[in-house]
Design a protein around this nucleic acid. Structure first.
Length: 479
RNA sequence: UCCCCUGUAGCUCAAUUGGCAGAGCGAGCGGCUGUUAACCGCUAGGUUGUUGGUUCGAGUCCAACCGGGGGAGCCA
């Protein structure tokens, strides 16, 4: 990420009457600076000094400020600073006399900007906290090491997804959040309505009369931008969406959210293999970039969260993803000397234990499973010549399982219609989707990459609720 | 939604066969120190998730409900 260099600062609006700590660390000792941020800890020395660890979130490390006892407000302000206080400190950057840091700020003045009402009630004092507890104080958890690091990595991944796709000629399409179609076929939907719930208008047959509703018909939050983005794909060739999606499933796991972000590239004149290549290149590019640009945060995750993350990411960057058909995968699983809770069987979906075995035990790397039975996959996936399987793919990674799900789309109208009918879906609802096959249809393919799962995998964080600022899950929408 | 575990101080957890509610961390005060996961001492802090039941007596046993965690399913 191109942070503005110090020289470029003057070309920016004067937001910074102070220096971000990330820049302070790169500054020559002897330079006079003002720093602003939040106090992590204060330690006093009877030599006549206080040491203040200051963090502003611009990088992982906090900086040490040395506050001499002869500051005019030393007794009444400096000595009462506690964890969480917001301050401004002006002074000279100096080579540290102590161990543990290279540079520190020798303060000439310290100004209290925002104090702590009562240190005893501050929810995130400088001590160990469980992630479960921190979820209850989600408005203050970004001040902790872990959540600051997650936020920076999340930003880095987000930014470079756009960069990666942009560099390859993809256009970013804003697909709608509200959809009038309940036929997206990827799970339970949240209803969007302005009807008065306690006094619903009824039709003559006794059902709810949605013609009185805001859109004059039933409306929902989208579960996927795919169907919409296919329309732009069949005009701009290479496109993607990156936005929130919503699933009203009663899912209670460490890798599901009711509101989550997803990247959905869609590529015209492309088959399944092409979309797998893109997904693999994209994941590798992202891992490489994060290890490079967020080395500070990644070192922390590797030390405190998961001692194998960096090694795992590096290994993935260096080796090709394993590709295996569903049929071969089932064969391999059946041959495995392992007791399954669910016996692998052709025609049934792979269970969590099967996916983990493939990716964690057999291959120890991401595994791309392709060509699933048509009966367990969505209507829009392209029927293979065997008439039994469809050109679908899932990319499985250790611990998390499915991180990408994609397919080549069915571009033949007759086959598409047959599939819609077979699956007893309301064909009228797909009129505009079917039009794409009537007017200049082309082979195309795409996939959905779960952004939260990507952040989870990259950081080693065990629960998806801890890689998004304010997780929405069943019975939980505080904040 | 199903299975298993769990709910005690601000946080993390103890509390013997049912018998006086405890510790560490954090916080406050004091001491020590170019300190840095600091160290030493003192102090404050509790309707044991809720409701009901069994019992002379319930943190402990029983029931229902509510929250949290792990696994499964749904998927990204």
């Amino acid at each position: 990420m191109a942070r503005p260099s110090l020289d470029e600062k003057h070309t920016m609006p004067d937001l910074h009457t102070y220096t971000p700590i990330v820049d302070a660390f790169k500054t020559q000792p002897g330079t006079r600076l003002t720093l602003k941020g939040w106090v992590r800890t204060r330690r006093d020395s009877k030599v006549g000094l206080s040491f203040i660890q200051l963090s502003d979130g611009s990088c992982f490390d906090a900086i040490q400020i040395v506050a001499p006892a002869d500051l005019p407000n030393y007794t009444d302000v400096v000595l009462s600073l506690t964890t969480g206080c917001a301050i401004a400190a002006t002074g000279t950057l100096a080579q540290s006399q102590g161990k543990g840091q290279d540079v520190e700020l020798q303060a000439e003045s310290i100004e209290l900007i925002g104090g702590i009402e009562n240190p005893d009630t501050y929810p995130v004092p400088q001590k160990r906290h469980t992630f479960e507890y921190l979820r209850e104080v989600a408005h203050l958890r970004p001040r902790t090491n872990t959540f600051g690091a997650v936020a920076r990595v999340r930003h880095c991944l987000s930014y470079h997804i756009h960069r990666f796709l942009h560099e390859r000629g993809f256009y970013y399409v804003h697909t709608p959040i509200i959809t009038a179609s309940d036929a997206e076929g990827a799970g339970e939907m949240f209803r969007v309505s302005t009807l008065d719930l306690v006094n619903l208008p009824h039709t003559e047959e006794g059902g709810v009369d949605f013609s009185d509703d805001f859109f004059g018909r039933e409306a929902f939050l989208t579960v996927s931008g795919q169907l919409s983005v296919e329309t732009y794909c069949c005009a701009l060739s290479k496109v993607y969406t990156f936005g929130p999606t919503f699933r009203a499933e009663n899912s209670n796991t460490s890798r599901h959210l009711s509101e989550f972000w997803m990247i959905e590239p869609e590529i015209a004149f492309c088959d399944l293999a092409g979309s797998i290549e893109l997904a693999e290149a994209m994941l590798k590019d992202l891992f490489r970039t994060v290890l490079d640009e967020r080395a500070d945060d990644m070192a922390f995750f590797n030390l405190r969260i998961d001692k194998t993350v960096i090694e795992t990411l590096q290994h993935i960057i260096d080796s090709p993803f394993v590709r295996i058909t569903y049929t071969d995968a089932v064969e391999e699983l059946r041959k495995a000397k392992k007791k399954w809770e669910f016996e692998p069987r052709w025609g049934a979906d792979l269970h969590s234990e099967h996916e983990r075995y493939l990716t964690e035990v057999v291959h120890k790397t991401p595994v791309v499973v392709t060509d699933y039975p048509k009966g367990i996959k969505a209507f829009y996936m392209r029927l293979n010549d065997d008439e039994k399987t469809v050109a679908a793919m899932d990319i499985l990674v250790p611990k998390i399982g499915e991180i990408v799900g994609g397919s080549q789309r069915e571009e033949r109208l007759d086959v598409l219609d047959r599939r819609i009918t077979e699956m007893r879906l309301p064909i009228e609802a797909y009129w505009w989707y079917r039009d794409l096959r009537r007017y200049g249809t082309v082979p195309h393919a795409g996939y959905g990459l779960g952004f939260g799962r990507l952040v989870q995998f990259t950081t080693g964080m065990a629960n998806i609720r801890d890689v998004i600022p304010f997780p929405r899950t069943p019975r939980n929408a505080e904040f």
